[in-house]
Design a protein around this nucleic acid. Structure first.
Lengths: 193, 193
DNA sequence: GGCCTGACAGATTTCAATATCTGTCAGTCA
DNA sequence: TGACTGACAGATATTGAAATCTGTCAGGCC
């Protein structure tokens, strides 16, 4: 029976739970407040708006989804193999969720779709990681590129079909794995110069 | 006052007009029939269903949009320059429409989004054209690839961000042109081997 | 015969009344 | 004092009855 303090984190946990249960379209701030046993006015003390709350939930989800990627960046081995592993990990994470629990994935896809600012930030973060691997590859003599950051962005763009939720409907195609490897093959040769 | 015969083509023209005016969500078969001055039953003599009619309109639009591409395939000059021109033409056609008349583009985007079979057919056609250019490039010694068709598909996939309507929202980004050239640069080097 | 109409059943959409939600804020309580 | 409540205005969503639409088909017209 301990008195729980109302924190942004506790609200986020509950909001995520409510959004999962009711779906992103139906979940309301009132629902979240009810689940927490407080008035909805209290929620607005911690988040400026419903949009801000949704953004925060989305940001957390994206961060969690991409947590394994940092490890790959810090990994050892030649940069080309590392970049391939990084992209495969990203693609596998997305496809895994999409296949695992399509409804939950659709839920998050909806959130992501209209959280432009959050996604931009997230993409910038991904580009940073790719750029780091490419830069190291240039150092090793594995890659030859003029503009590392542009190349990093190009790699992410070129593989959009395999990780961008906008293409999720195509991920059930049995040839999607081969398609990804074909694009990777072209990119890898392109990076080698 | 000449009696007009009811042909599939005349229905298609009218359907396109009606869809433009009312939007893809509101346009009905009855609207099309009314515009033609016939009963809606007659329309079903030429198209098995509303979906079939929409598909036919979509197919015509895609064909029209991509008409300039055939000329580029048949063009002269080295294959790499030709492929670059082909992709630029495709991208320019899409961006042009999207910028020109966003509402009309959104209309067609909606149609395209739920005409999976039509789009698959269309994509196959585009891959054919790319494959032809790449094959000629291999003949010229400009390109070096194992599987021409797979490479063609990879080129289309890798440039999805720049021509797939699912990404239309990103096309207003001022750096989109540079991003495209960066991806092209990587692909071109990859194709050269 | 072949093209078209008009009426029909069941599915879908519209519309307006009703309920709920978002975001604010003065006031309560500890 | 500072976290919280509850009532409020305007915006948005739900609902169910009525209207419209889709797809079919028997029958009329040339």
């Amino acid at each position: 029976m301990s008195e729980q303090v109302l924190t942004a984190d506790r609200i986020l946990d509950t909001a995520e739970e409510v959004i999962r249960r009711f779906g992103p379209a139906k979940a309301t701030v009132v629902d979240v407040a009810r689940a927490l046993g407080v008035s909805h006015g209290s929620v607005y003390r911690h988040f400026a708006s419903k949009a801000a709350l949704r953004d925060a939930v989305t940001r957390r989800w994206l961060d969690r989804l991409c947590a394994p990627l940092a490890a790959v960046v810090a990994d050892t081995g030649p940069a080309d193999a590392r970049l391939h592993r990084w992209l495969s990990t990203l693609v596998a994470a997305k496809h895994g969720r999409a296949l695992d629990d399509p409804e939950l994935f659709a839920t998050y896809m909806t959130l992501v779709m209209d959280a432009r600012a959050v996604v931009d930030e997230h993409v910038a973060h991904l580009v940073d990681q790719i750029a780091r691997i490419i830069a190291e590859g240039v150092g090793e003599g594995v890659f030859r590129v003029d503009d590392v950051r542009a190349a990093a962005r190009a790699v992410l763009d070129a593989t959009a079909r395999f990780h961008n939720p906008a293409h999720a409907a195509e991920w059930s195609d049995p040839s999607i794995g081969r398609d990804f490897e074909a694009v990777w093959g072209l990119l890898a040769r392109g990076l080698r110069g």
